[in-house]
């Protein structure tokens, strides 16, 4: 029963078909719905761990579907959008979607996004306690002690940089829109100043990415927002690696 359950809500049979085939080959249990109504029913009775949703459904706006779903479920939603319009994606994300793919998309990309979302769901910690140590690439962040290190060397972040990083980490790989980040980090007075996020993201990249011009973790979603890719829980990693002094110290902090 460990196969992850995925619900695909898409009105185009061919797309539904190939999404199903590629996900089943990855060992997932896929159910399909061809309309928003069927999608709602399937989401309620099958309890999927991930919903893949097409924004252009014939019987309803995808955003309404997401809002409905969010009123009773926290299941991750991956949006498929045929529209090149950025504001549609932003609206879907702000309605509660977690990530998006623009059609036409490739299978490897789809699988990667689906896996990331499923991982994300486990990242929150099923054991109840919210973890405070996270790792991405060579960077290790302790949310509880405000310690950030890269390649075992401490990195100094300003308070706003840290808050921005923490917001991205709490998003667990979800795409966060400029607005969401501004509200979270700066507060409501700054909601329409996306250039603030861009400047501080640039600072974060300079400090945390080995190649700031081609970031691997602090990823830009152009005109939409940002995503923190490749994030993992620190505790599990620490167990599998020989603990260095600093890690031990961090671990101790976490225990305390």
């Amino acid at each position: 029963m460990n196969r992850p359950r995925v619900l695909v809500v898409e009105d185009e049979p061919d797309i539904r078909h190939f999404v199903r085939l590629s996900l089943e080959r990855e060992g997932m249990l896929v159910s399909e719905a061809g309309s928003a109504l069927d999608g709602r029913i399937a989401a309620a009775c099958r309890q999927p761990e991930l919903v893949i949703l097409d924004l252009g459904l014939p019987d309803g706006d995808g955003k309404t579907f997401i809002r409905d779903l969010r009123s009773w479920s926290q299941v991750p939603v991956l949006v498929l959008s045929a529209r090149e319009r950025e504001d549609e994606k932003v609206a879907a994300l702000e309605a509660g979607a977690d990530d998006y793919l623009v059609k036409p998309f490739g299978v490897p990309e789809l699988i990667a996004r689906v896996r990331a979302q499923l991982r994300r769901a486990h990242l929150g910690g099923a054991d109840g306690a919210a973890p405070s140590i996270f790792v991405f690439g060579e960077v290790r962040v302790n949310l509880a002690t405000y310690e950030v290190s890269r390649c075992h060397r401490a990195v100094h972040l300003t308070p706003i940089e840290f808050r921005l990083l923490a917001a991205l980490i709490r998003g667990h790989g979800k795409v966060l829109t400029y607005r969401q980040l501004l509200l979270d980090v700066w507060g409501p007075g700054y909601a329409n100043r996306p250039h603030y996020v861009r400047v501080y993201m640039n600072n974060l990249r300079q400090k945390l990415e080995p190649e700031p011009a081609r970031p691997r973790h602090l990823v830009t979603e152009l005109q939409v927002g940002y995503r923190l890719a490749g994030i993992e829980r620190g505790k599990e990693l620490a167990r599998s690696m020989p603990a260095s002094v600093s890690e031990g110290r961090l671990h101790a902090h976490h225990q305390a």
């Binding site: 996306p194 011009a213 830009t220 152009l222």
Partner: peptide, 16 residues
């Protein structure tokens, strides 16, 4: 045009 203030790196990153 929907002009806004952007970091050029990000635009290059997206294109790449």
């Amino acid at each position: 045009l929907q002009r806004d203030w952007h970091a050029l790196d990000e635009v290059i990153e997206a294109a790449l």
